[in-house]
Amino acid sequence: MTDKPKIAFFDFAGCEGDQLQVANLEEKLLDLLEHVELVSFREVMTGHADDYDIAFVEGSITRPEDEERVRGIRARAKILVALGACAHIGGVNCMKNFMDEAVYREHVYGHKARSYPTGPARPVSAVVPVDAAVPGCPIDANEFLRVTKQLLLGMRPTLPEYPVCVECKMAGNVCRYERGGLCLGIITRGGCGACCVTEGAQCWGCRGLAPGANLDAARYVMQDRAGFSRTQVQDLMRMYLGHTTAPL
């Protein structure tokens, strides 16, 4: 029997909610741990080792020391997986990128702002190469399991490439637009089961843009057809998609 792959969890700017989703897997997590050795996961264990094969990285990169640290993780890990929206696409942290740096530093650090250098929030992939991602805010625990199992089996992890609409229709929902609402499901990568719309809310785009998302059509739907203002659309698109190249 060969050694089990060693896995480690790391967090940057974020709420650690994605690691919480992993911890909440409970028994399934224990089953998975039959196949891996956990060397670092501060939400569930003490201790840490710098010898690991798969690094799950949560949070976005925003401070100079973050960059240095994530480069170190990249150098040690054979496989680096971005865990959750902040690591995958920058997430809500990127909202600050549209504000003046002095304003948000002052807001967070008060009169000590000068002592804490911080810059634009970015996804991990903006700093180091990322091998795979588990999208979402928070992540879908079953998707984490699937991606991890695929990695353990030597497969390339797969994510749905279709927009949220597909799973929304599978769930049998009435379209948010038919009820007079705004929704980013039309351009957001599926895989979440359209959970937010199913629960009566809307899609905020936390899983990032679907590959090939037609942003011209989306703008036509949101503004010209549904009648929302450019500001309303922009605010919604900046919530999670601030780092994308989408014309915001």
Binding site: P163, C165, V166, K169, I186, A213, N214, D216, A217, A218
Partner: peptide, 13 residues
């Protein structure tokens, strides 16, 4: 088709 969101809704319903 230039305005197609490629969302599959037409197929799925």
């Amino acid at each position: 088709s230039s305005m197609c969101l490629a969302c599959g809704s037409c197929n799925l319903v």
